[in-house]
Simulated assay, not measured.
Amino acid sequence: MRKWIWTLIIGCALLFGGWFIVEQTLRDTASQQYEKTTIPTLFIHGYGSSYRAEEQMTKAIVKAGVTKNVIRANVAKDGNVKLSGVLPQNAYNPLVEVDFSDNKQTDQHKNGKYLKNVLVKLQKTYGFKKFNVVAHSMGNMAVAYYMLDNASDKSLPKLQKQVDLAGHYNGILGLNDEPKTYALQENGLPYDQTETYKELLALKEKYPKAQVQVLNIYGDLDDGSNSDGRVNNDSSKALAALLKERARSYQELEIKGEKGQHSKLHESAKVDRAIIDFIWKK
């Protein structure tokens, strides 16, 4: 009986060990597809949300073999930033989950300031001179206003790659209890522009020229609404008129059907793959 138990234990150990080796080999092979740099990629959540909305994406990126290093930047309401976790000296493609305590802030310049504080903290701690960003919903406003206020500041890290998920650059459906449709002109500018969009028009001059690669991802429920259920597609696509002539490159990706719902975009395997390929694939 005892011999049988030891045989079972040894067999399980060999099976587990073999599985671990295969899994590690597959991950190492996959990682060879990706660039390895020290540039951090920041993930910024939307209104009323937290870093937990970013975890599905960061876990998918780690699982794909892109990186092993994930830390968190916790931003207090007073703007003070504390980092949770430590990046080793040999860290490559590090991910930073940004968590705003003041997650219902509607002053977009203040949200941009919160992002600036995160970048200053990372710069002082690790010496980063460049960064990438992935933002969802209101998080895109933090990025847009950060660039609006700081794009010309050469002392700050330079943005390299920007992924926008479900951006509402020219309004939100249901705001003030009355859905609106913001149609686009042939030049990409909305016929009717919100006050926010009018302010963001300054990006046409302030956004760094030929520096940033942009991927704009938006969802279409494919139900005739031309929206992700929360944001009109034309509001998301209005980003092109702000950045296309200034960006190093600009592209859009539409996610159709149920997975294109506003809050499901950051839970989509297709979106995960698009982010991975856009930021890190060789």
Rank of each mutant, 00 (worst) to 15 (best):
R27V: 14
D28W: 13
A30T: 04
S31D: 07
Q33G: 15
Y34R: 13
Y34C: 10
E35L: 11
K36G: 10
T38F: 05
P40N: 09
T41D: 10
T41G: 06
T41L: 12
L42R: 09
F43S: 00
I44A: 01
H45T: 11
H45N: 14
H45P: 15
H45D: 14
G46K: 05
Y47T: 12
S50N: 10
S50D: 13
Y51I: 15
Y51M: 13
R52L: 12
A53Q: 15
E54W: 05
E54T: 11
Q56W: 15
Q56E: 13
Q56G: 13
M57G: 14
T58C: 13
A60G: 10
A60I: 11
I61P: 10
V62T: 12
V62F: 01
V66I: 03
T67D: 08
K68W: 14
N69K: 02
R72T: 08
A73H: 10
V75Y: 03
A76C: 11
A76I: 11
K77F: 01
K77P: 00
K77Y: 05
K77G: 02
G79Q: 04
G79T: 02
N80G: 05
N80L: 02
V81F: 03
K82R: 11
K82A: 12
L83D: 05
S84L: 06
S84K: 04
G85Q: 00
L87I: 04
P88N: 01
N90R: 00
N90K: 05
A91N: 04
A91P: 06
Y92H: 07
N93I: 09
N93L: 01
L95K: 09
L95N: 03
V96S: 01
D99R: 04
D99H: 07
F100A: 07
S101M: 12
N103R: 06
N103Q: 09
Q108I: 00
Q108C: 09
H109E: 03
H109I: 02
K110R: 05
N111L: 06
N111I: 01
K113A: 07
